[in-house]
Design a protein around this nucleic acid. Structure first.
Lengths: 264, 264
DNA sequence: CGCACCATTGATATGGATCAATAACTGTGG
DNA sequence: CCACAGTTATTGATCCATATCAATGGTGCG
């Protein structure tokens, strides 16, 4: 998935716990969830939705909660994670504006197996779960959108498993940078870390200390990190950490310089 | 998910690469994929499907393949996995009769990020991917079924991530046994390993040697393993490895003896 | 200005991987 | 029925990568 993320959704939603003004929505350039929905179907989703502001650090959904909404991030950041009894956390996803969460959970049955926490002051669109479930039966397009979204999550989860099991910390970090690079701007030589380092470290299944040392090793390959600013030595320096399915959507794929690592 | 698995699907499908006789299907007791589908919609899925036999060890889908079918296991076993360039494998799921695979992949876009391999002589029902995608737009029930299935996979993947990151090998094994116990028969004191140990080891993110040593440690808690037969010391010996969302669907949950580990 | 929080760096410990040898089991053919 | 090869599981010895522990430096905020 190259290119920039679409902005997000309703452009005029602001007030707290008030019905989202569904007529103010620009259907064309929007979250994957709403893609291709008819005006009518979109309306029946949004007319029941509410907008809520939440401050950084607050929990949105707790482990074990009954989940009553699907959330769309209008602005801010959220992470989803699993926490063990001993306080250890495993970050599943880290989300920004335009992303949805609890989209899969509302189809799992039972209570939430994950926690969701705001990691920045955020604004969330909340669509009642029962509305979603009801609309899925009526609107095949919505079903397809959700399937694509959830399948995407699943794909990421599989890559995460794979990373943690088969790769070293440095490789995981390189792979993460590569994906950032492609998401943000495949032509730029600069990438920006969208989250705190300790948070990324946890997401990659390592401790902050290990993360730090991994950064150091990358420096010797020409990838320098100054605070949240990553500068690539040359355009191909991350290629070593590529894998076949990332290569597939890489503009450099097939060029003579693309020959390294797992590249295929 | 307690209780036994539903048998599987078409009861009269046998011949190779021949249209599945859709009229021979018992809609009531079947795979989650077909649950609640109208006779007509079910028919339009099955009339285009084929059945294929495959011997143990053969690859069904390769990493990078374009996926043209959704598969339902009629009999046998299959594993899905990711393999790195250096030959390391990370097992994602291990499946038996009634399970589906490539259900999520056909909605991901791009080629397959995983490989699927038969681990026993197997018989598979193959439903063309384009039929599925097309039917999803028409049949909301099919969409819901798929969403539940894919969400379930995602949930398992999250638990797998969590296990590997926050738990020790012994804990992972205990957790795995617990889930087997609840799937197979929560009342029996015997559980059976459905797969080769080395395969389970890989699925749990450890080496066979580590698996073996973990078995030894469990023995000291009264869980004895003889070949593929696990016998539990007492009914609560696995409770230590429980987690909140597994507890939720446990018949012992709430009884005075349920108080250990992550149990909540 | 000083207190928190985060990142970095160094020193040490340890859990699981690796290497190696043996044992149990499976199937095959004489 | 037994000998043999091939596979899988177990067990022991060693090694190494990453966690852990500890101290310092940097940055932002009140």
């Amino acid at each position: 998935m190259p290119g920039k993320k679409p902005p997000c959704i309703p452009s005029g939603t602001s007030s707290e716990n008030i019905n989202a003004p569904s007529q103010a929505v620009d259907t064309s350039n929007t979250t994957a969830l709403f893609k291709g929905l008819s005006e009518e179907n979109l309306q029946s989703l949004l007319s029941n939705s509410t907008v809520r502001s939440i401050e950084s650090g607050r929990e949105i959904v707790q482990h074990g909660d009954e989940v009553k909404h699907l959330y769309v991030i209008i602005e801010g950041s959220v992470k989803t994670l699993r926490a063990s009894a001993e306080g250890e956390e495993a970050t599943i996803r880290m989300l920004t504006a335009g992303d949805t969460f609890m989209d899969a959970v509302i189809f799992m049955g039972g209570t939430s197996p994950i926690r969701a926490t705001a990691i920045k002051q955020s604004k969330l669109l909340m669509i009642p779960a029962h509305i979603i479930r009801q609309q899925v039966l009526r609107d095949g397009q919505l079903g397809e959108n959700l399937l694509k979204i959830v399948s995407g999550h699943y794909k990421n989860a599989m890559q995460q498993i794979d990373s943690i099991v088969t790769k070293t910390p440095v490789e995981r970090l390189g792979y993460y940078f590569l994906k950032l690079h492609m998401e943000q701007d495949p032509n730029s030589m600069e990438v920006e870390l969208p989250f705190q380092k300790s948070m990324i470290a946890n997401h990659l299944g390592m401790k902050p200390e290990t993360f730090s040392r991994a950064l150091k090793k990358l420096k010797s390959i020409g990838i320098d990190v100054d605070h949240e600013r990553i500068s690539l030595g040359d355009a191909y320096s991350l290629c070593h950490y590529c894998d076949p399915d990332t290569a597939f959507s890489c503009p450099k794929h097939g060029t003579p310089d693309c020959k390294p690592g797992g590249c295929n």
